[in-house]
Write a protein that binds this DNA or RNA. Structure first.
Lengths: 258, 258
DNA sequence: CGCGACTTTGAAGTAAATCAATGGGCGTGG
DNA sequence: CCACGCCCATTGATTTACTTCAAAGTCGCG
């Protein structure tokens, strides 16, 4: 069911791809690296060495990127698609830790500490990844302080995001959790209204908030009925962020409207 | 109620200290720095420059170290005592994020990203801290790749710990949460039995597990009655870690024993 | 059109939060 | 040395919000 085997590194291999997909050839790795924001700070010589230790992974939906308790052997940078990073729970449920999209990366902390992976990671849809060999990555880091520095910033960023998630999940009411989550995506504190797209299936967003899909659906419905948000498929419109924020401080908001 | 003012940086200020405390004089900062494991990797010249930007904080219990949404102006390294790092919740409850003890530190990620602090931090008991000025810290980082590297490792470590906490709090049963927490402290997978001391008040440990003190108390009592652990004050003895681990995979363990 | 994946809705059960009161340990002071 | 007060932990009774189980409904796609 799960195919984690990447394509052969020989780019001329006549591997039939779905017609509407453009497979990125191995030869185009240097170019792809250079294009990604992730590598903007990296000097050209570094990128060349990096490219030689990099493979393109073309992962169909549901294929595994990393398995819990196993060593990660590469840094993964998402070119396209979506990777769901999660911790498995009893009742075969999941706690989603992060949803990694294009331009984002996966695994720095693991690689640096040479520790086993604390999470599973699977493709949430067909995805392209760059897999940079761990040793090559570590070697480049040791050569250039700017890269170490950038990685430090990146891991710090992930850490801060995780703290924000912790804060959200610590809210004891589901309405509070969802409201906090929505408000987290407010562009600036000046914007009263804004629209944003759920980064994944509602099921996975729910799992990120520590809720079941059912509860998430109900809360979304509730907020909608209250006129605080409008939900259409994966698109959510917040008209008045301050008003939504207000329920954050309310004790009980169950039947306030009716 | 909360005094966050540190002592004057002039060590000769005749500030009366509790008789049973040895105030660490400002003059002894270089020595103290050298002694801490945290600074083992730092070259001597770095430590000297660091020392000049470092203050000793002698914090009475309950005094604030950092406030949520405010800028951190120093890296804090705990010499003695205990700092409780937490996120405030409605119902004036807290979600404890970490309990920082001697040798541990606080704030690297914030300082590096120059972002506002995402948590409160207060002394859980009378504590000594070294407060290293943010600018001095950043400057030393920029000068030496080894320090950047070490900080990267440190932040990565904190990140991994936070993921482990996330995993624990994601467990939907309180018994599972507590059991997971206890088993996290197993020295090696060979050790069947081991003893360990709760790092803080039960109240705070509970808050770290996302539980109320009442629930935590009940679960501890339950596990004790099952003969899986023995609790005496802050000391917990686990006789058979495997047996305790077994309930992790059990569906329902409510009244299994009686 | 019909199938599969995902979501919504409903009804019932349950575990943990909450409220409230008691109990124990420890330091301080009589 | 005992008495008092404070802080922390425990225990019990009640409530409530979330999960769970089950089924129907929507959407996109071959």
């Amino acid at each position: 069911m799960e195919r984690s085997q990447p394509y052969s590194s020989l780019s001329h291999t006549a591997r039939p791809a779905p017609v509407n997909k453009l497979p990125i050839a191995q030869a185009r790795i240097p170019e792809t690296l250079r294009r990604l924001a992730y590598f903007q700070a990296w000097p050209d010589e570094s990128l060349e060495r990096l490219a030689s230790g990099t493979r393109i992974l073309h992962l169909p939906k549901h294929s595994a990127v990393a398995r819990k308790n196993e060593r990660l052997e590469a840094l993964n940078v998402v070119v396209s698609g979506l990777i769901r990073v999660f911790i498995p729970l009893p009742n075969n449920m999941e706690r989603v830790v992060s949803l990694v999209g294009p331009g984002d990366s996966l695994g720095e902390a693991c690689l640096i500490l040479k520790q086993a992976c604390p999470y599973h990671a699977v493709a949430g849809r067909d995805s392209h990844l760059l897999a940079i060999d761990a040793r090559v990555f570590r070697r480049e880091l040791s050569l250039d302080i700017a890269l170490t520095r950038q990685t430090l910033e990146r891991v710090s960023q992930r850490f801060m995001e995780t703290l924000r998630d912790t804060e959200i999940c610590a809210q004891r009411s589901s309405v509070l959790r969802v409201a906090s989550y929505l408000l987290l995506h407010r562009p600036t504190s000046e914007d009263l209204g804004f629209t944003f797209r759920l980064p994944a299936r509602k099921q996975d967003v729910a799992a990120k908030l520590g809720l079941t899909q059912e509860t998430f659906s109900r809360v979304l419905g509730f907020l909608d009925k209250q006129g605080l948000i409008q939900v259409s498929a994966g698109l959510i419109r917040i008209e008045d962020a301050d008003k939504l924020a207000r329920i954050t401080s309310m004790k009980d908001c169950k039947e306030a409207g009716q």
